[in-house]
Write a protein that binds this DNA or RNA. Structure first.
Lengths: 110, 110
DNA sequence: ACTCCTACTGACAAAAGTGTGGGTACCGAA
DNA sequence: TTCGGTACCCACACTTTTGTCAGTAGGAGT
């Protein structure tokens, strides 16, 4: 009877990792472990600086990603998955495998 | 000529089930098996008729959903998952469980 | 003094996604 | 004759998302 804002777990999950980029960012961080901004940018081909920053801010606010600033010049900021983010990444893995498996068919769609 | 290839499986998967509704539609069809338009509409609270139609058309074009028209009056159209859609639904399950498990935390985010 | 480097920030605009309110078709029941 | 019921379609407007381009800070190297 708890008043839920989301209609099911999938709905909630999509709300936090939805959009075109968040899944890929999580995936990259899951693979590499610790990445600085520029590295992350290269790890997610096609994303603009602005988009990466916006998405990272949201992921940080959601508690999925940890941001560590090293006070240096030039600046150095490192991103990594939190426990929470890591658990989401694990849940995302089968979806990635599915996409990998059916890549050709998916590419043939548009 | 937009010859785009996806950068990884997750990218491809997100391309076909991305957006706010497709995951939920697939999920509902996975649960219920066979639903007519009006039933599906009720199964996905908050979606508008227009959105449901648009999303169903895309899912159909992607080969994830099967559409069967019964020539009757009043009209009767039934939707169901294809094998392909069913496999995606399976891959989506862990994500749904993750969301279910962390529902409270997710709801506390905005 | 000048430029390079990195991680940002902000203004603006285009594109994509979404909602609203209307309409269509058909048949049978009232 | 009018109405109810179902599954749509269309035009328009609005909102959210995404992209583009410029600019900032401050120490280090030349």
């Amino acid at each position: 009877m708890t008043k839920r804002t989301y209609i099911c777990g999938l709905d909630a999950a999509i709300a936090v990792m939805g959009g075109k980029w968040k899944g890929l960012i999580l995936f990259s961080l899951g693979e590499e472990g610790l990445l600085r901004f520029g590295e992350l940018r290269r790890a997610v081909p096609g994303i603009s600086e602005r988009m990466l920053i916006l998405q990272l801010r949201e992921l940080e606010a959601s508690g999925l990603v940890h941001r560590e600033v090293h006070h240096q010049v030039p600046p150095k900021v490192e991103y990594s998955l939190t426990e929470f983010g890591s658990s989401l990444n694990t849940a995302l893995a089968p979806l990635g495998e599915w996409g990998e498996e059916h890549m050709e068919r998916i590419e043939a769609i548009p």
